[in-house]
Design a protein around this nucleic acid. Structure first.
Lengths: 264, 264
DNA sequence: GGCGTTCCTTCCGTTGGACGGAAGCGGTGT
DNA sequence: ACACCGCTTCCGTCCAACGGAAGGAACGCC
């Protein structure tokens, strides 16, 4: 599947390997470090990094090291599933934050993981595991369950049959359990992850629909668990998701307000 | 200077040309469009785009077109001058927004242009020209003047001697005038752009200092001009800039609060 | 001061991957 | 049915990418 599956390194794959060498822990690297992490000969890394830096995809810092450059960020700011989505959702996320003063998440699905597009956190909030641009297994979090429940059937099957990483004693750990939870999420329209990532945290998530009426993202709110009831958060999260869907132009969000979906 | 100055197209430069083919107006392109915009033969574009899409730098949408991918955005989220800066500044920007409910900008300097890192806008705000990830000439805006005034001397000279694009009758249009304004900005610590981009808008900007006590960014607030006085905004903007500088670990921001810099 | 280490940069002969014209394919409009 | 447009695949040519090697600069240790 990958371009370098046959051990045939192309120039493009090397360039991408260089970008991949950077991580949240290592945002600044020397050429030598890049060459090691990307598995490239020093002279090759030197040449490619030079070209990338010249264009602005990488930048040199004061010490001579390289960092991800502004120019790359400018291009990335055009990603529809990233900043463009964030832009539309921001007002609603701020409302959600104002209503609770807890952690608010906006994420999309990529494979079996969620990628956090935006995060608003309480100043002195509970320990936050998420990071904008960061990833997390979908089966554990509120946003992840909301996204997975509305994903392609074969993707769901891959999640159900695949290994499920365990974070706490309450993390969903078996396929049948995940299948049951996903069905429940589809029935109620919201996903609740109670103590499945951290024992003392609770997350309520809801799917966000795009113009073609498919689920494109999910919002969630994460709160400390003694002190909040999941039931109390369901209406605001659902309303926020509807608002974002409407802003994105989802037909579904324009229809009858909360009748068919509302159970009980 | 450029890698392709000698008309020697390298693979890396072609890959970057492909990324460059995307713009704010055209966020989705077909292979044919990419090949035209990047000036590449179709088969070459096809091969390179395929590799980029395989890695995740580009993504296919429902219609078969290509968009900037999430994976690229993840890497770009590591840029110190982008998201990392934004993260530290966000609480202060929100305070600034709460205090005025007008447009708040955070930007950095790249050449003679500013690049907007973050923007908070009033829901039904005045017409907004800026865009996150967008560029604007530095000599006209509040953020731009604040940044330029503290930039390298030779960069300032390039701005002063270079052509100055005019937006309104009040846009700074001559070198000597710009030189005078920049000196004024350094003296007062704030930059005021009154009607220099749009006739009925006023902007007050202040520099943000990094750990090494150099100016790394600028904050500004943009308000409609009949209804606001620049003088009234100076304290909040300055306080916000100081707050962000402190959050970034600037020694300067820890020193005596507002004595030496405060004039009158 | 001498020496080892580490990292950056440049050079250049070899070679294998990038190149792109051409042809085939599928969809759409007239 | 034909023309058009865009996507995809193929394959022989050739030149740009490759990377080992050597030189150079900066730092730290004995």
């Amino acid at each position: 599947m990958t371009a370098r599956d046959a051990g045939r390194p192309t120039v493009t794959s090397r360039v991408l390997d260089i970008l991949e060498a950077f991580s949240a822990e290592r945002t600044a690297l020397t050429i030598t470090q890049i060459s090691r992490r990307a598995g490239l000969p020093l002279s090759t890394a030197h040449r490619l990094v030079g070209e990338l830096a010249c264009w602005g995809a990488l930048e040199r810092d004061a010490g001579g090291g390289y960092r991800v450059g502004l120019r790359l960020w400018e291009v990335a700011a055009l990603a529809p599933r990233g900043p463009a989505l964030r832009e539309a959702a921001m007002p609603f996320l701020e409302d959600l934050y104002e209503a609770t003063h807890e952690n608010v998440h906006l994420a999309v699905l990529d494979g079996l993981e969620v990628v956090y597009i935006e995060r608003i956190s309480a100043r002195a909030a509970v320990h936050v595991f998420s990071r904008v641009g960061g990833r997390w297994p979908a089966h554990a979090t509120g946003v992840g369950l909301a996204l997975l429940a509305h994903a392609d059937t074969d993707l769901q099957e891959r999640a159900i049959t695949g290994p499920l990483r365990r974070f706490t004693g309450r993390t969903i750990a078996t396929g049948p359990e995940l299948r049951r939870v996903l069905a429940e999420v589809r029935r109620t329209g919201v996903a609740i992850s109670d103590g499945q990532v951290e024992t003392f945290a609770l997350s309520v998530g809801a799917p966000v629909y795009g113009p073609d009426d498919t689920v494109v993202a999910a919002v969630a709110i994460v709160v400390p668990t003694p002190g909040w009831e999941a039931r109390a958060l369901v209406p605001v999260v659902r309303a926020s998701a509807r608002g974002i869907s409407r802003a994105l132009g989802a037909p579904r969000a324009l229809r009858s307000p909360e009748t068919a979906l509302h159970n009980r």
